[in-house]
């Protein structure tokens, strides 16, 4: 992407939950076509919980008991515009359903087709999805009383002890103006900083404010800085693998104090210099990618450094090192 773009990022992770002594059997039941409630304090609670809601005393899986599959709607809402997280793409109802044999209502989805089909007090009944994995989404409800077709439970499936949940939050927004100017500068081969009106120090990359003096900075504070500087800090990273990680080989991440700047640029990735010769105080120059090949898509509002998309590499200038003692104001 060789243009400045809006942010569109999904903060996403595939979580693994352990289910414990009560939720586990409940989810196992759903997978096997049964809905379980829990006898506690003289009533049957569904969904079941690990504690007596009245006293907090721990409950026992021995008190799980089958409820439903039909029940009565005690309250509902019609979802006219489902989100990406909802169980149906078409309009449907979320409802409080008191299953037969239970004393409390559980929240679930009713695929009723039309809002006119919904009413408080109506009967609904479970439908188990063909593909079940031990999740609350293995089941949904439809109007009526007709029992669901028998579900064939896999006798070898074991009990549900863990569940997987891909949870993501999508973030979409324009780049903040100061970020957009910085990104545009990189595309043009210029590194832009901002000079604080409070003390004249040059921040690069700027965050749009001077944190020390607590003042905002605007376009009038933009200044260009050099693409040559001094290493102030570095780490060799052996990449830990996690969801979304694309790095596989160790590399050096360093901070560079660019000439004429007062803050360091962090997060500069160096892959062309060996760690044994890398050191604080070393002088480096950025070697730009050709203008048409620069990519600033990594720049967003929550991170805005000199992205690896705009340089070929950083290389030693051959100048003598700067005394690290002179750099100790720049530990980042």
């Amino acid at each position: 992407m060789t243009a400045v773009h809006d942010v569109d990022f999904t903060l996403e992770y595939p979580y693994t939950r352990s289910t414990g002594p009560i939720v586990g059997p409940w989810l196992t039941g759903l997978r096997d076509g049964r809905i379980l409630g829990l006898r506690v304090g003289g009533r049957v609670v569904c969904p079941p919980v690990e504690y007596d809601p009245d006293t907090g005393v721990s409950t026992s899986p021995d008190d799980l008991t089958e409820v439903g599959p039909a029940g009565t709607v005690t309250a509902w809402t019609w979802v006219c515009a489902p989100t990406s997280k909802h169980p149906f793409a078409q309009p449907f109802a979320f409802a409080q359903i008191r299953l037969d044999g239970a004393d409390t209502a559980m929240l679930h989805a009713v695929d009723a087709g039309d809002m006119a089909a919904m009413s408080t007090g109506m009967r609904v009944v479970a439908r188990f999805r063909p593909e079940r994995r031990g999740a609350v989404t293995d089941v949904y409800f439809v109007p009526g009383d007709e029992p669901p077709p028998p579900v064939e439970a896999d006798p070898d499936a074991g009990s549900v002890e863990t569940t997987e949940h891909l949870i993501g939050v999508r973030i979409r927004e324009p780049l903040f103006p100061f970020r957009a100017r910085f990104a545009r500068g990189l595309l043009e081969g210029r590194i832009l900083g901002q000079r604080s009106p409070a003390d004249g120090k040059v921040h690069v990359p700027s965050r749009g404010y001077d944190a020390l003096n607590r003042v905002a900075m605007g376009p009038e504070h933009d200044v260009e800085v050099a693409d040559v500087g001094t290493v102030t800090s570095f780490t060799e990273i052996a990449p830990i693998q996690y969801h979304g990680q694309t790095e596989t080989e160790p590399w050096i991440r360093c901070s560079v104090l660019l000439d004429s700047a007062d803050t360091t640029v962090g997060g500069i990735d160096v892959r062309h210099i060996g760690v044994e010769e890398f050191r604080v105080g070393m002088r480096l120059r950025m070697v730009w990618k050709p203008e048409g090949e620069r990519d600033v898509s990594a720049i967003e509002n929550r991170w805005g450094g000199i992205t690896g998309g705009v340089y070929e590499r950083w290389e030693p200038t051959g100048e003598p090192d700067v005394d690290p003692e002179l750099l100790k104001d720049h530990p980042f």
């Binding site: 990022f9 903060l11 996403e12 992770y13 780490t235 990273i237 990449p239 830990i240 996690y242 979304g244 990680q245 694309t246 790095e247 991440r253 990735d269 929550r302 991170w303």
Partner: peptide, 8 residues
């Protein structure tokens, strides 16, 4: 922050 290249 959910991005690649985390340094831990």
């Amino acid at each position: 922050g959910g991005r690649s290249g985390g340094q831990a």
